[in-house]
Amino acid sequence: MIPFLWRTATTGVTLWLTTLLIPGSLKFDWGTATATWQKVGIVAIVAVIFGVVNAFIKPFVQVLSIPFYILTLGLFGIIINAFMLWIVSWFTQKVTHWGLVVNNFWWSAIWAAIIVAIVGMVVSAVADAVAK
């Protein structure tokens, strides 16, 4: 249970920091939430949804896109990660009417996917250093 909570917390921090780094392209829609604890809860729920999407949908998409991975020497992974962010955005907006918002797929999601990867590495490194 602790590894799941730790992974969810680092994913949530990563997504939140990414929204601060690219404010126009990626943001959180808080809905009617005004209190800080409500906003933290929204970030945590979005992080769980992002984890579920990455665990169940991403492997199928990766297998189906193997030729594109080969053709682009792995750079197609950025497109796949952007697509996962877009799926999370679409799901949270349609189901809950709050959550992650990606303005448009092409540049917003692509840049967000790159920043999420970089920030995720930094947050994970810091979190692992603090845990030890």
Rank of each mutant, 00 (worst) to 15 (best):
I45S: 04
I80K: 04
D128G: 05
V63K: 12
I49K: 01
A9T: 09
L85S: 11
N103E: 12
W86H: 11
N104L: 12
S89L: 00
T92Q: 01
F50S: 10
V101L: 06
V53S: 03
A129H: 02
W6Q: 12
L64G: 15
N104T: 15
V52W: 01
K132T: 02
Q62M: 11
V88F: 02
A127S: 10
V40I: 15
V63E: 12
K132V: 02
F60W: 14
L20D: 12
Y69D: 05
V46E: 06
I2G: 01
W6N: 14
A35V: 02
W106K: 13
T92M: 04
W98Q: 04
Q93H: 03
V43F: 11
R7Q: 12
K58R: 10
V102N: 05
K27E: 12
I79Q: 08
V122S: 02
F4N: 09
A55S: 08
V122G: 02
V130W: 07
T36A: 13
R7M: 11
G41R: 15
W37N: 09
V48W: 05
W16G: 13
V43R: 11
M121S: 00
F91G: 01
A125Q: 03
V13D: 11
F60D: 13
P67V: 08
T19Q: 08
D128H: 07
D29T: 03
G41L: 15
W6I: 13
I118A: 01
K58W: 03
V53T: 02
I87E: 09
I87W: 06
G77F: 05
T14R: 05
I80V: 12
L71F: 06
K132R: 05
V101N: 06
